[in-house]
Write a protein that binds this DNA or RNA. Structure first.
Length: 600
RNA sequence: GGCCCGGUAGUUCAGUUGGUUAGAACGCUAGCCUGUCACGCUAGAGGUCACGAGUUCGAGUCUCGUCCGGGUCGCCA
C-alpha cells in the first residue's frame, strides 16, 4: 500500500460509499468498530467521522491479509485498500447508509493497535460522566458527540458568514486585560514583569468592543472566549464562547433586526425549517408578572395570577402578612392538577422552598369535595373570589406562594416549569423566541446595602426614567434586552452610555466615587471626550445556542473538552500546582489553609 | 458555602431484616463456525463492594468522616 492519507484521491470517507461506487478501487482509513469472525469469513466495520463501511475477507482473500484481519480488535486503526462490491440480495443491511456495499480488501495495514477501551464507542452511551471525561478523546469518537462538535462548527461558520455579509468586521480583543471590580469573579493572571500586579481573563470583550465603536469600526463581531470564576451548572462553564457584536449609530430596533436575521439564517441553513420574525416582545415587568421569570418559557401556560388584593384583609396571617410586608400573594392554576397526590404536592412544596418560599398553599377542586391547605383560614367568599380570579375549575389545582416579590417570582417561575415538565405540557418541537425588554437598570443588594448594575454599568437608562435616577433608582428602566428561547437566555445586550455626563451619573448611582471611577474606568471616561458615537450591541452564548438547536440539555455535550462541577478538567487534571520556580519568578507564595497546616 | 442524589467485575446494574463462596447482562480471552452486521455456539478469566474509622460474633448492607461525580440554591455586572 503506497498511500493511505486522505489526500490520496482514491482515499474516501467510510460513510460516503454507496452502490454507485461498485467496482471502484478505494482506500479507506479509520477505526475498527467491530470484528466479526465467522471462521473462513471475517467482517470488519470500519468507522470514521462520516460513518461505517464493512470490510470483507473471505476465501478469495490473500491468506496473509486474512490472518491479519483475524487479529484485529476494537479501535485498531486501519488503512484498507480494496474493491467496492455489492453485498448481494439477502446480505444487505438496511440500518446503515452503506449497507448495500462492502469493500473486498486487497491490502490491509494496521496503523495502530489498541487496548480494549474502558467503555464502548457507541452512539447511545449511559456511561458515567466521570469516566467519559477522563477519556474524553474516546468519548469524542462517539457518533453523537462528533455530530454535536461538527454542528457547532457549522453554526459558527454560518455566524461568520452572516455577520460578514452584514458588514461586520471581525476583530480580536485581548485576553489579558485589567481586572474589573463589578460583575463575576475574574480569573487572575499574575504578571512576571510587574510583580504583585495582575491581569484578568475577560468575562466578555465588553469594554474593548465599546472602544472599537469609539474608533469608528461601526460594526464589530467576534467569536469570543469568555471566563468567569463562578460555580458551574448544567448550562454554565467557567470558560465559554460568545457570538459578540456591537454596532454604532444603532438603536434597539437595529440590533434586534440584525440578530433576528442571524437566527433566521441559522434556521434556514442549519435547522432547515422556517423561523417567523420579528420575534414577540415582552417587557421585563410583564415577564415577571405573567411568568415569574425574566426568561419565560412561553411554550405552555400556567401563568401567574396575583391575588394580593383579595387576601390582604383576610384572617390568614401568612397571606395578609406577606402583602403588609410589601410582598405579594400569587399562584398558578394547574388544569387537571387535582389528581395530584398529597405526596406529589409535598414534593412541590419542597421544590419551592429551595427558592426561599416558606411553603406552598394549595387548593384541589375535586368533584367529591374540595380539599385545601388554606381554605379553613378564609371566609367562603374570600375562597370563592380566589378560585374565580385564578379560574380554578373542577379537577384543577391551585398552587399559591405568599412572600416578598422576588421570592414569589423565583419560586412560582421555577414551579410552573417544574409542573409543566412533570405533566408533560411542553411541546419540544416549538422554538419560542422572545425579546425581553426594559430591564431594571439597577438591582439593590441587601447584603452590600447598595445598587448594582443589573446588566453592566455602561448600560443606557431609558430617557423617560432619567428623573428617577436621583429619587427612585430601583425604578429606572434600562435600554437593555435579552433574547430568550424556550426559557433559556440565549443572549443579551444593551444600548450603551456614550457621554461623560451620563456615565458619571451612573457611577454616582452605583456609589462609585469620582476617584474610584477615574482609577478603574478613567480610560473610558477620557475617551468620551473625543467624540463617541451612540452605540449598542448584543452577545449570544454560543454553547447555549448550539445546545438548544440540537435539543440537548447538557452544555458539555457541545464543548470538546469541558470542565466538571468543581471547575477541574479530568483529562489533563487541571488546575494543578505551579512549579515553585515559576511562583518565585512571579513573586507569589501559596498560603496553606489552616487544615493543611495541621496535616503537616 | 448550603441542600439533595450517586459510587459494587472493563461497562450498566441487582444484591432481601446485617449472616455460607457477592450475582446478571454486555464486554473481554480461547476454541468452533461461509454472509455476518447487537453474528451464533462452547468454555474461561475477571471484585481493595470509592477510601478511612466506628458499631457488631459478623458490614457491600448500619453510623461518622474523607474523596470523587451529578443536580440545585447562593453566585453568575
Amino acid at each position: 500500500m503506497e498511500s493511505f492519507t486522505k489526500a490520496d484521491k482514491r482515499t474516501v470517507y467510510c460513510g460516503t460509499l454507496t452502490s454507485a461506487d461498485i467496482g471502484r478501487e478505494v482506500t479507506v482509513t479509520g477505526w475498527c468498530q467491530r470484528q466479526r469472525d465467522l471462521g473462513s469469513l471475517i467482517f470488519i466495520d470500519l468507522r470514521d467521522r462520516t460513518g461505517i463501511v464493512q470490510l470483507a475477507f473471505d476465501d478469495g482473500t490473500d491468506r496473509e491479509i486474512f490472518e491479519k484481519a483475524f487479529g484485529i480488535r476494537a479501535e485498531y486503526v486501519l488503512a484498507a485498500k480494496g474493491t467496492v462490491r455489492s453485498r448481494g440480495e439477502g446480505a444487505i443491511n438496511r440500518n446503515i447508509p452503506t449497507g448495500e456495499i462492502e469493500i473486498f480488501v486487497t491490502s490491509l495495514k494496521i496503523l495502530a493497535s489498541a487496548e480494549t477501551p474502558p467503555f464502548a464507542i457507541v452512539e447511545k452511551s449511559d456511561v458515567k460522566a466521570e469516566l467519559r471525561l477522563k477519556h474524553r478523546y474516546l468519548d469524542l469518537r462517539r457518533p453523537d458527540l462528533q455530530r454535536n462538535i461538527i454542528a457547532r462548527s457549522e453554526i459558527v461558520r454560518i455566524a461568520r458568514n452572516y455577520f460578514a455579509e452584514q458588514g461586520f468586521i471581525d476583530i480580536e480583543t485581548p485576553c489579558l486585560i485589567k481586572p474589573t471590580p463589578e460583575g463575576a469573579r475574574d480569573y487572575l493572571v499574575p504578571s512576571r514583569v510587574h510583580q504583585g500586579k495582575f491581569y484578568a481573563l475577560p468575562q466578555s470583550p465588553q469594554l474593548y468592543k465599546q472602544l472599537l465603536m469609539y474608533s469608528g469600526f461601526d460594526r464589530y463581531f467576534q467569536i469570543a472566549r469568555c471566563f468567569r470564576d463562578e460555580d458551574l451548572r448544567a448550562d454554565r462553564q467557567p470558560e465559554f464562547t460568545q457570538i459578540d457584536e456591537e454596532m454604532s449609530f444603532a438603536d434597539e430596533e437595529d440590533i434586534m433586526a440584525v440578530n433576528e436575521g442571524f437566527l433566521k439564517k441559522l434556521f434556514d441553513e442549519f435547522m432547515h425549517q422556517p423561523l417567523e420574525i420579528p420575534f414577540k416582545r415582552m417587557t421585563w415587568k410583564e415577564a415577571m408578572n405573567r411568568f415569574g421569570s425574566d426568561k419565560p418559557d412561553t411554550r405552555f401556560g400556567l401563568e401567574l395570577c396575583d391575588i394580593s388584593d383579595l387576601v390582604k384583609d383576610s384572617g390568614f396571617s401568612v397571606f395578609k402578612g406577606a402583602v403588609e410586608a410589601g410582598g405579594s400573594v400569587r399562584g398558578i392554576t394547574v388544569p387537571g392538577g387535582a389528581k395530584m397526590t398529597r405526596k406529589e404536592i409535598d414534593s412541590l412544596t419542597d421544590f419551592v422552598k429551595t427558592y426561599g418560599a416558606k411553603g406552598l398553599a394549595w387548593y384541589k377542586n375535586t368533584a367529591g369535595g374540595p380539599t385545601s391547605s388554606f381554605a379553613k383560614f378564609l371566609t367562603e367568599d374570600e375562597t370563592a373570589a380566589i378560585l374565580d380570579r385564578m379560574q380554578v375549575g373542577e379537577g384543577d389545582l391551585a398552587l399559591i406562594v405568599a412572600a416578598k416579590n422576588k421570592v414569589v417570582w423565583d419560586s412560582l417561575g421555577a414551579l410552573r416549569c417544574e409542573v409543566a415538565k412533570r405533566l408533560g405540557l411542553i411541546d419540544k418541537s416549538k422554538f419560542n423566541f422572545l425579546w425581553v425588554t426594559e430591564f431594571p437598570l439597577l438591582e439593590y443588594s441587601e447584603e452590600d446595602g447598595r445598587f448594582y448594575a443589573m446588566h453592566h454599568p455602561f448600560t443606557m437608562p431609558m430617557e423617560e426614567d432619567l428623573p428617577l435616577l436621583d429619587t427612585d433608582p430601583g425604578a429606572v428602566r434600562a435600554r437593555a434586552y435579552d433574547c430568550v428561547l424556550n426559557g433559556t437566555e440565549l443572549g443579551g445586550g444593551s444600548i450603551r452610555i456614550h457621554t461623560t455626563e451620563m456615565q458619571t451619573k451612573m457611577f454616582e448611582a452605583l456609589g462609585i466615587g469620582p476617584e474610584e471611577a477615574q482609577e478603574k474606568f478613567g480610560f473610558l471616561l477620557e475617551a468620551f471626550e473625543y467624540g463617541v458615537p451612540p452605540h449598542g450591541g448584543l452577545a449570544f452564548g454560543l454553547d447555549r445556542v448550539v445546545c438548544l438547536l440540537l435539543g440537548l440539555e447538557d452544555i458539555r455535550d457541545v464543548i470538546a473538552f469541558p470542565k466538571v462541577q468543581n471547575a477541574s478538567e479530568l483529562l489533563s487534571k487541571c488546575p494543578a500546582p505551579a512549579d515553585p520556580k515559576a511562583l518565585e519568578e512571579l513573586g507569589i507564595a501559596v498560603v496553606k489553609t489552616e487544615e493543611e497546616e495541621e496535616d503537616v
